[in-house]
Design a protein around this nucleic acid. Structure first.
Lengths: 224, 224
DNA sequence: AGCGGGCTTGACCGATCGGTCGGTGAAAAA
DNA sequence: TTTTTCACCGACCGATCGGTCAAGCCCGCT
């Protein structure tokens, strides 16, 4: 797989890159993640790095390129990162490994992850927007494949596969909004807990007659 | 409960408000939701409304106030909105109702919801930041209370209550990133499906020996 | 010593930002 | 009729935006 070097504040990057460039990417990632793309000025980045604004343009052609290096350096290889951490074994365990690996990625490249999942919901750059969606889809379809495997193997019941994928990804993607690196568990442990909850369910197995059987459609709250 | 009038594009507002003000809030909410606070200029809002920029300042004192009216008008009463839709009955059904009600709120006040959950992760306005966190906490603790009820009643197993709350809220809070109002189910139906998955679990009940028993701690992937 | 080239800078640019100001015109109030 | 009120607008402000540029600084090479 592509080699990833871990640097301060977790910028994933191909090997060649000067310390200055890494510093800029690191500070920019943190700023993009906390203040957003539009809320972060080139001056902000320069000041955070203790350099002049002009120097940013010596190393990068414009603001977009810095963001692209932060976000793409983050998301480009997420699919590969996770795929290479899926062990052989029961499909349900692959799903667990998927969740834990994604959580590990989040922990290692936290700011870049947040910057890439937060900013640019609608990217004005059509090409980049399309590429981002392609990567996201590949990642999501990989998960759906694992879920389908588990269904076929009879390990999980016949659920709506895309919806199941969305539930699992939601639990991981929302983590950055409440996760505090100084407290509680590691992201990997949290992913593990979430897997247990979703896979085994919250319902008390000792409960003979579950209060919620397969609910009749008519009982659902109607949309108005 | 507090009276909410439903207007075009779903701005919740106290009764007194001119059509113009509602139009501004509606357009501003949509823009804040899609382009972010910093990515939306006062000119953008004015153009979207087909009025002059000056007129915005006739109705609002500044940009922050427009955002506050959009976001606060959206989140202020979420807790009350949901609380009043929790029926009497088994605690697990209350949790389901909580999820469905939140989804209904999302559907009705979609742009305002997105704007308020997206922008201002770190609000420079300390007072408003504190108030926002207070509301969020009140909402989250209300859910935890329902979960604790269900645990005490023996309907769900002895889980980590805060973590369970985070899992449930994640599934709802992330919905705006993938939900397409033109396709698939209504938010309420999606919430219903998520509840079923989380409550009953994905595991095939026909499976005699689940491949994942309560996993030993040592098998967890260690953080590095 | 002289020199070339990469790192670094401050001064500067046009555009756009949030916000202000004086005024217009029509309807309500007197 | 006169006056007041108020939704509304175009022109404008200082500040800041992303980005440019010519020139210094520094260091190794000849």
């Amino acid at each position: 797989m592509v080699e990833l070097s871990t640097t301060k504040d977790g910028i994933a990057n191909p090997a060649e890159a000067s310390d200055r460039v890494l510093q800029i990417l690191s500070e920019a990632g943190r700023l993009f993640a906390t203040k957003g793309y539009d809320g972060t000025s080139m001056r902000d980045i320069a000041v955070a790095c203790g350099i002049s604004k002009s120097l940013l343009y010596h190393h990068f052609s414009n603001k977009d390129e810095i963001y692209a290096r932060v976000a793409v350096g983050s998301t480009l290889e997420l699919y590969l990162f996770v795929r290479d951490r899926i062990p052989d074994g029961p499909p349900s365990q692959k799903i667990r490994a998927f969740m834990v690996a994604t959580a590990e990625y989040f922990r290692r490249y936290r700011w870049a992850w947040i910057a890439s999942t937060t900013a640019f919901w609608n990217d004005p750059d059509r090409h980049r927007q399309k590429e981002r969606l392609t990567r996201r889809d590949r990642f999501e379809h990989f998960l759906r494949g694992l879920i389908q495997e588990a269904v076929d193997a009879g390990e999980i019941r016949k659920v709506d596969v895309p919806m199941t994928g969305r539930l699992i990804l939601s639990s991981l993607n929302w983590m950055h909004r409440w996760y505090n690196p100084n407290k509680s568990a590691t992201p990997e442990q949290i992913a593990d807990i979430f897997f247990d909850m979703v896979f085994n369910g919250l319902r008390n197995p000792a409960l003979a007659e579950p209060p919620t059987v397969e609910q009749p459609k008519s009982s659902r709250r109607k949309a108005r």
